[in-house]
Lab assay of single mutants.
Amino acid sequence: DWEDIVRFLRKLFELGEEVVIGDWHNHHREEIKRLIEWLEKHF
């Protein structure tokens, strides 16, 4: 279910905002944000 995936990604992203998950999070933050925005537009 796409909504569950979007919710999971958003939760992960919000957690990442508070607890910076090292370089991985910083590197992928923009991609995650773009992916969430893309999914919201399409689903």
Rank of each mutant, 00 (worst) to 15 (best):
G22H: 12
E37G: 11
E37K: 07
E37T: 07
I32S: 01
V6F: 15
K33F: 11
D1I: 14
I21R: 10
K41L: 05
L39W: 08
R29P: 05
F43D: 03
L12A: 01
D1A: 11
W38G: 03
R7C: 07
E18S: 13
E17I: 15
R34G: 04
W38F: 09
E30L: 09
V19T: 06
I32W: 11
N26W: 08
H42P: 02
L39F: 11
W38M: 04
H27C: 05
K11V: 08
D4T: 11
H27D: 11
N26E: 11
D23S: 05
L9S: 00
I36L: 05
H42V: 12
R10E: 15
E17P: 12
H42T: 07
I21E: 11
W24Q: 09
W38Y: 05
E17H: 12
K33Q: 12
K33D: 05
I32N: 01
W24E: 06
V20H: 10
E31D: 09
G22F: 02
V6C: 08
L39M: 03
N26S: 11
L9D: 00
E30N: 07
E14Y: 03
F43H: 06
E18R: 13
R29M: 08
R10W: 15
R34L: 14
E31N: 08
I36W: 11
I5R: 01
N26F: 08
G16M: 15
H28S: 06
K41D: 08
V20T: 09
E30M: 10
G22P: 13
E3F: 10
H25F: 15
I36N: 01
L12S: 01
D1G: 12
I5A: 01
R29T: 09
K41S: 08
E30I: 10
E14I: 07
F43Q: 03
R34Q: 08
N26Q: 11
G22I: 08
F43W: 12
E40D: 10
E40V: 14
D4G: 06
E17K: 14
L35D: 00
R34M: 11
D4K: 14
K33S: 09
W38S: 05
L39R: 00
F13W: 13
W38D: 02
V20C: 02
